[in-house]
Simulated scan of single mutants.
Amino acid sequence: MKLAIARSAATVLLSFSLSGCAQTAVFSPPPNGEQVTVTVKVPKDLAADTMHVMYRSAKCPSKESADGVPYEIDGFYPIDVEPRQVGQSDLYEAKLARDGGGACQWKLSNVTFGVHYENTAQFGLDAEYAWGGGVIVIFDDNLPQRRSMERITEQSGDITIEKEYYPWVSESFLGGYKKRIIILGRQDVFSYKSINAKTITFKPTFHSNKTLYSQGPKTKNKDEIPQYTYPNGDTIKTRSGPSFIKMSN
């Protein structure tokens, strides 16, 4: 593969335990093997995420247990891949081997990627990026290590993802002051599944000039309600979270 791959564990929301040959498994994609090209068109003010890639192996299972009952699942091999800029463009690309090779015969299972705020200084020195702008693409029948609460969109062939996003400055006060910068979309993470995709393209549209501001309660008084101020100046108090529809109007 042309990309330098850091073989560190990807950030996961589920924990697994390596066992059997997976503990000493060698990850060795064959030369000239089939690849999946993942491309992200990065908007101004944002940066491409490190891609968290998961390979699975039926040949090297992982031993698990539930309620004291042991069972096996396909072994797993996570790696991180840094997408590379294509020339001087706003495109960032990574090529992922479908076949991870080695004695375990690793197979590409899923990839998590997206965009994030690399520099939040424009929102104040105390601002920090929180979440948003994520995508999961699944290539087999295994559940991904990170899961969205929303449904998985299944399709055949290549995938092009075009979504709208807005900056959200969220201030919270209880338990200590925090200012979080969120990339607001209809979902925090969008999930797709395509067994035979060869190209994955993510084209987020980021409306950096339309910022949502919110402030959480400052006391534990149950009558205090979070307040949201929309780009058009409207202020709404609600416990239901922001309205994406109102942002897009």
Rank of each mutant, 00 (worst) to 15 (best):
P29D: 02
R146K: 07
L18C: 09
T11L: 11
E118I: 00
S172G: 11
Q187R: 08
G157P: 08
S17N: 15
Y117H: 11
T39M: 13
R186N: 09
Y129S: 06
Q85E: 08
Q145C: 13
F202W: 04
I200D: 06
P144T: 09
K107E: 10
H52N: 12
K237I: 02
V189I: 15
S17V: 14
Y165I: 00
E162F: 03
T235S: 14
V81P: 01
E72D: 11
S109V: 07
S248L: 15
Y166H: 02
T205P: 00
G75N: 04
L174H: 00
L18E: 15
Y165N: 00
T39N: 11
F27C: 09
A94P: 07
G176D: 07
D158I: 10
P70E: 05
N249T: 10
L46S: 03
V42T: 05
K178Y: 06
K198A: 09
A58L: 11
S248P: 03
R147K: 14
V115S: 01
E154K: 14
S214D: 07
L3I: 14
R56D: 08
L96M: 04
S194P: 13
G176Y: 07
G101I: 06
R7H: 10
Q155S: 14
L125A: 05
V115Q: 05
T112R: 15
V137F: 09
V42L: 10
V26H: 06
P61L: 05
D126Q: 13
P204K: 02
R98H: 03
Y55H: 01
Y129A: 09
I200K: 08
D223K: 15
D140C: 05
V137C: 13
D126R: 10
A121K: 14
Q215Y: 06
T229H: 00
D80P: 08
T219K: 04
I73R: 15
F139R: 03
A58T: 11
S191I: 11
K220C: 01
I183A: 00
K59H: 08
A197I: 09
T153R: 14
I159L: 13
N209R: 00
E118S: 14
V12I: 09
S15W: 12
V42N: 03
Y55F: 10
D140T: 08
Q122Y: 03
S248V: 10
S57Q: 12
R147S: 13
T211D: 00
A22Y: 10
V137D: 01
K220V: 03
F76I: 12
I73F: 12
K210H: 06
T219R: 08
V69G: 04
Q145T: 13
D45R: 09
G100H: 02
N119Y: 08
Y92I: 05
A103W: 01
K59S: 12
T160V: 13
